[in-house]
Amino acid sequence: MKITLMVWRQKCCKEQGKIEKFVVDNVEEDMSFLEMFDILNERLILEGKDPIAFDHDCREGICGACSMTINGVPHGHEHGTTTCQLHMRKFKDGDTIYVEPFRNKAFPVIKDLVVDRTAYERIMQAGGFVSVATGNAKDANNLPISKENADLAMDAAACIGCGACASSCPNGSAMLFVSAKVGQFALLPQGQPERKRRVLAMIKQMEKDGFGGCTNMYECEAACPKNVSVRFIAKMNRDYLRASLFTKSK
């Protein structure tokens, strides 16, 4: 297969970027999208050029490192698939593919396709946990949890923190990410003591970092490689209102 790549190149966050065209000739159907980039990069290195920088690590769709927007959709158009698990057989010989970094004010570009996602870290630090120090736990089966709730919590917990939601959202909103974490804990008895504090703190941090607000377009759900449902956003809206109304403001 011959693929034309239109790739965003940007030396560093301060410089202007632009689209650069590359033609890759020997693409095989069994290659993953990132392996195509590997081949291109090997070629660029041998030509003495700077290879295209992109984040990646596990290459099995779980670490959440990869962050390419492919033809206008984070991780590409394939449903429920990360970039590293996207295979070239989903494209046709002669295709032109646009590859850009995840875009959001809170995710500044570091270089080429690499973005800085520490904004998600700050949101997690604000409240994405159950405050239980090691050694404080009672026997695990002392806390029965209905299978339905455990399964639903797992649906939310499947989030890999890649940032596709905030980057696909026309508003740049991180609501799906935040609601996945808030929703997981809200469904479990362990999360109840900090439920109100958590949702207020995480949303506050989200807004502080410059993410936009949700207007229910559901693009996040469609782009999410782990199919996290916007149902959790709905739940969080309720939680947040309750917490805002019934918590003493500081």
Binding site: G135, A140, N141, I145, K147, M154
Partner: peptide, 22 residues
């Protein structure tokens, strides 16, 4: 055994039976 207790306390959504136990 303490590991399982600790993880459950943190909210790790382990698989459960219909009775709600692990």
């Amino acid at each position: 055994n303490n590991i399982i207790d600790q993880c459950v306390a943190q909210g790790v959504p382990f698989a459960r039976d219909y009775g709600g136990l692990l």
